Computed example of a mutant assay.
Amino acid sequence: MTLNNLHDVYHDQLQDLYSACKQSLEATTELGRAASDKELSEALIAGANGISEGMDKIKSLCATHDIDPEGEHCKGMEGLVKEARAHGLEEDFGDDATRDAMIISQYQRMVHYALAGYGTLAAFANRLDLDEDGAILSKLLDDTYDGDRHMTEIATQGGVNKQAA
């Protein structure tokens, strides 16, 4: 497909982010099962729920623009998911806290990709005067930031990093 204007780029990136979310959903669920810290496990389950809700909203946005949300495969998230599995699930760890610290780092890498995607799409929507789209994407961006900050709190204030040290 030729990308001729910002509308085309916006549509392409909606599909890319949908793919990214779809891939990270499964990995986040797996990381949640592997986490030993109860608060971390619960946060990852909440993260998976948030990803699923985001996918539903992206799918709805795609429908309003008559595009298939499955139209792209996000290679960036494919790599991040591969890394998350290799480093957070398949690696050998001396103790559970060390694994939990690694799980947080791998999850946050995936989340930061989503933050970039939501932020970019919100900016595109606003430039294209797609006010409703922009509001939805800005809300998803805010929710994703909240989840990322919560994960940082679990690592630093909740004690995961301290226990791993």
Rank of each mutant, 00 (worst) to 15 (best):
Met1Tyr: 15
Met1Val: 15
Leu3Asn: 10
Leu3Phe: 15
Asn5Leu: 09
Asp8Pro: 05
Val9Leu: 12
Tyr10Val: 01
His11Lys: 12
Gln13Asp: 01
Leu14Trp: 14
Leu14Ile: 08
Ser19Thr: 07
Ala20Val: 01
Ala20Met: 11
Ala20Gln: 15
Ala20Leu: 10
Cys21Lys: 12
Cys21Trp: 14
Gln23Leu: 00
Gln23Glu: 09
Gln23Arg: 00
Gln23Ser: 07
Ser24Asp: 08
Ser24Leu: 11
Ser24Trp: 04
Leu25Cys: 00
Glu26Met: 01
Glu26Leu: 02
Thr28Met: 12
Thr28Arg: 03
Glu30Tyr: 03
Gly32Thr: 07
Arg33Asp: 11
Arg33Tyr: 13
Asp37Asn: 13
Asp37Gly: 11
Lys38Met: 10
Glu39Trp: 06
Ser41Lys: 08
Ser41Asn: 05
Glu42Trp: 07
Ile45His: 04
Ala46Asp: 14
Gly47Gln: 04
Ala48Lys: 06
Ile51Val: 11
Gly54Ser: 09
Met55Thr: 05
Ile58Gly: 09
Ser60Gly: 04
Leu61Ala: 09
His65Asn: 08
Asp66Tyr: 05
Ile67Trp: 06
Asp68Val: 01
Gly71Lys: 04
Gly71Val: 03
Glu72Val: 03
His73Thr: 10
Cys74Arg: 12
Lys75Ile: 08
Gly76Thr: 11
Met77Ile: 01
Met77Gly: 02
Leu80Pro: 05
Lys82His: 07
Lys82Pro: 03
Glu83Pro: 13
His87Asn: 10
His87Asp: 12
Gly88Arg: 05
Gly94Trp: 01
Asp95Phe: 02
Arg99Val: 08
Asp100Glu: 11
Asp100Gly: 04
Ile103Lys: 07
Tyr107Asn: 10
Gln108Lys: 09
Gln108Gly: 02
Gln108Glu: 08
Val111Gln: 08
Tyr113His: 14
Leu115Thr: 07
Gly117Leu: 01
Thr120Gln: 05
Thr120Asp: 00
Leu121Asp: 05
Ala122Tyr: 06
Ala123Leu: 13
Ala123Asp: 13
Ala123Thr: 15
Phe124Arg: 13
Phe124Ile: 06
Phe124Trp: 06
Phe124Gln: 12
Asn126Leu: 13
Arg127Val: 07
Leu128Asn: 15
Ala135Gln: 15
Ile136Ser: 03
Leu137Phe: 13
Ser138His: 14
Lys139Tyr: 13
Leu140Val: 00
Asp142Gln: 13
Asp142Ser: 14
Asp142Cys: 00
Asp146His: 12
Asp146Gln: 15
Asp146Phe: 07
Asp148Gly: 05
Arg149Leu: 11
Arg149Gly: 03
His150Trp: 02
Met151Pro: 02
Met151Arg: 06
Thr152Phe: 03
Thr152Ser: 13
Thr152Glu: 15
Ala155His: 04
Ala155Cys: 08
Ala155Tyr: 10
Gln157Lys: 13
Gly158Trp: 05
Gly158Thr: 05
Gly159Lys: 12
Val160Asn: 00
Val160Lys: 11
Asn161Gln: 00
Lys162Leu: 04
Gln163Phe: 01
Gln163Tyr: 09
Ala164Cys: 10
